[in-house]
């Protein structure tokens, strides 16, 4: 069995607020296998977004360790973390996913371009990613010329472009109508069926149902100790 794409061991995170140290997460353990699609549900303030930030090397834990594709994140410099985000992790949020000054194709090829790949090599890869989410014909449109659902699909295409294997999604359907939301979830599911992995934070049980596993986070801890237990 191959190593998990994401492993979190006894991860904790605190914030300072009004002079008080508040624990918002942990300690929690989590493993995400390659090709697995996990949804995390929970009430507001449960620590879902914090967990996602830690998983994607956007934030550092106060305790425990995070391993991404077998590499421990602790101690990496800013440029090393940036390289990790370019090559391993993709993000999709509720809004503000795309750079407004770049077309759909340019947004999709952004991680490849940032990684120094020549445009003539990056363009076919990005175009293929866009076509996988059904947006090949809109490749040269700017974000403001796209609908909310189309923007989220561009973000998904970018999240999985090139060698990236892990998608972290924070309420990606929050600002969409139900039909567009379903379309986004179907694309996520398809990507995971193709070998990619996804960690989805959502409030919507219907969307969570697309996942292989659903975890409930309450007051910074998983409600059931089933974080590493597979099953749909």
């Amino acid at each position: 069995m191959s190593a998990p794409i994401l492993r979190m061991e006894a991860v904790e995170r605190h914030y300072e607020s009004a002079g008080q140290r508040i624990r918002v997460l942990g300690p929690v353990d989590l493993e995400l296998a390659r090709g697995e699609f996990v949804a995390i549900m929970g009430p507001s303030g449960a620590g879902k977004s914090t967990l996602l930030g830690l998983a994607g090397a956007l934030d550092r834990p106060d305790g425990g360790a995070v391993f991404l594709d077998g590499q421990k994140l602790w101690g990496l410099r800013g440029d090393e973390l940036a390289a990790l985000r370019r090559r391993k992790v993709g993000y999709v949020f509720q809004d503000l996913n795309l750079v407004e000054g770049l077309t759909a194709l340019e947004n999709t090829r952004l991680p490849l371009e940032l990684d120094g790949l020549a445009r003539r090599k990056a363009d076919p890869v990005a175009l293929a990613a866009l076509e996988r989410v059904g947006l090949g014909e809109l490749a040269h449109r700017f974000p403001e010329e796209l609908s909310g659902g189309e923007r989220q699909r561009v973000a998904i295409a970018r999240a999985f472009v090139g060698p990236r294997e892990l998608l972290l999604a924070d309420e990606p359907t929050g600002a969409l109508d139900s039909l567009a939301g379903e379309t986004v979830m179907r694309h996520l599911r398809t990507a995971c069926d193709g070998g990619k992995s996804a960690l989805l934070v959502t409030h919507d049980a219907r969307h969570a149902a697309w996942a292989d596993r659903v975890l409930h986070l309450v007051d910074g801890r998983f409600a059931h100790d089933n974080a590493s237990v597979g099953g749909r």
């Binding site: 440029d79 940036a82 390289a83 985000r85 750079v99 940032l114 990684d115």
Partner: peptide, 12 residues
């Protein structure tokens, strides 16, 4: 946009 660039892996 800067936030998206950071998330996409733009180095400092």
């Amino acid at each position: 946009d800067r936030r998206v660039l950071v998330l996409t892996g733009a180095s400092p």
